[in-house]
């Protein structure tokens, strides 16, 4: 007697509890690994702004990675019916490439091409957001729940803009005075913290909308709408608050948010399995199911937050 489940398991069965525990352990392990590396780098280059810039490159790259795969899947699903739908693929690929280059670049000066691509990504992301707003508003009844649930997501092009913005900031940090890093005339650390904070808020908005669309049918769906807003608040405090030596709580919370962003991929993989045919029918369900590349955008922003935090903690005036 075969007891194969064609569709999925129980809503909150043992498998899910198990998954939750594994996910939590993986998150902690990841956070611990991140913490170790962090300490090591801090000791090695405690006085340089290059580290901070490279971390921001890494954050920008993580975001670009998320956008690249997300838009590839979504726009493939939309059959690239509008030529402009190739744009995010090109832009996020370039942003990903220059971010990788930036992470490996230890020079303390801005790289012109990298910077140009980052700035372009920021501008094109902003234009894309406009396109998506237009797409959402043009359906029958204008902007309503139906169109925000199922129209073009506003968060996706905004994420590429954020990636560009963080990258551009990274380039400017390399160029500025290591003791008083400035970006666009503002304290670099605080500015990066503010960008990351706003980005986290926006991404939370996107996750809330889509998880609400999914009726929060799985309790784990509450995680990305509860952890990141706390990160955003902590980063806002970092950006605007007084100078402390150590914000250990903020740091741990950001690490947790980073880990959540990566572990979220596993949850979304489980979500794909719960569609008709599960992973055996991956060609359809990867398109239908929860987007696999979306959660890491939280990680990208939390990593940017960590970079900003180090800057602020190390340099009273950053």
């Amino acid at each position: 007697m075969s007891r194969e489940v064609v569709t999925s398991g129980k809503q909150i069965g043992e498998d899910q509890v198990g998954l939750g525990i594994i996910a939590a352990m993986a998150a902690l392990a990841l956070a611990a690994v991140l913490a170790r590396k962090q300490k090591y780098r801090r000791l090695a280059q405690s006085s340089g702004t290059v580290t901070a810039a490279r971390r921001l490159n890494r954050a920008a790259g993580t975001l670009a990675f998320s956008v690249l795969f997300d838009s590839a899947i979504e726009h493939y699903r939309g059959s690239f019916h509008n030529k402009a739908m190739y744009t995010p693929l090109v832009v996020s690929s370039l942003a990903l490439a220059v971010s990788a280059h930036g992470v490996n670049d230890e020079r303390s000066e801005m790289h012109r091409l990298r910077d140009a691509i980052y700035v372009a990504a920021a501008v094109i992301g902003a234009i894309g957001t406009g396109f998506h707003i237009y797409n959402v508003a043009k359906g029958p009844g204008g902007i309503n729940w139906q169109s925000v649930f199922y129209g073009a997501p506003l968060g996706a092009p905004a994420a590429i803009a954020l990636s560009g913005l963080l990258g551009a900031a990274a380039e400017r940090i390399r160029d500025s005075d290591p003791h008083r890093p400035r970006v666009f005339g503002l304290p670099a650390g605080r500015l990066a913290a503010a960008i990351a904070s706003l980005g986290l808020l926006g991404t939370t908005g996107e996750a809330s909308l889509l998880h609400f669309r999914g009726a929060f049918h799985n309790p784990f769906m509450f995680l990305p709408v509860t952890l990141p807003p706390v990160s955003a608040a902590l980063l806002a405090e970092t950006a605007l608050g007084k100078q402390h030596r150590s914000r250990w709580f903020t740091r741990w919370w950001l690490r947790l948010t980073t880990a959540m962003g990566f572990v979220g991929v596993c949850f979304h993989a489980y979500g794909v399995h719960r569609n008709m045919g599960g992973w055996r029918n991956w060609r359809q369900n990867v398109l239908n199911g929860p987007p696999l590349p979306a959660p890491p955008s939280f990680a990208g922003l939390a990593l940017a937050g960590l970079a900003a935090l180090t800057l602020v903690e190390d340099r009273p005036d950053a």
């Binding site: 489940v5 569709t7 999925s8 398991g9 129980k10 809503q11 669309r213 999914g214 009726a215 049918h217 799985n218 979500g271 719960r274 569609n275 008709m276 045919g277 359809q284 239908n288």
Partner: peptide, 12 residues
């Protein structure tokens, strides 16, 4: 259903 429920997958 528009999202998974127990052993039911969402509408295809």
């Amino acid at each position: 259903i528009s999202a998974p429920r127990g052993a039911s997958p969402p509408c295809v």
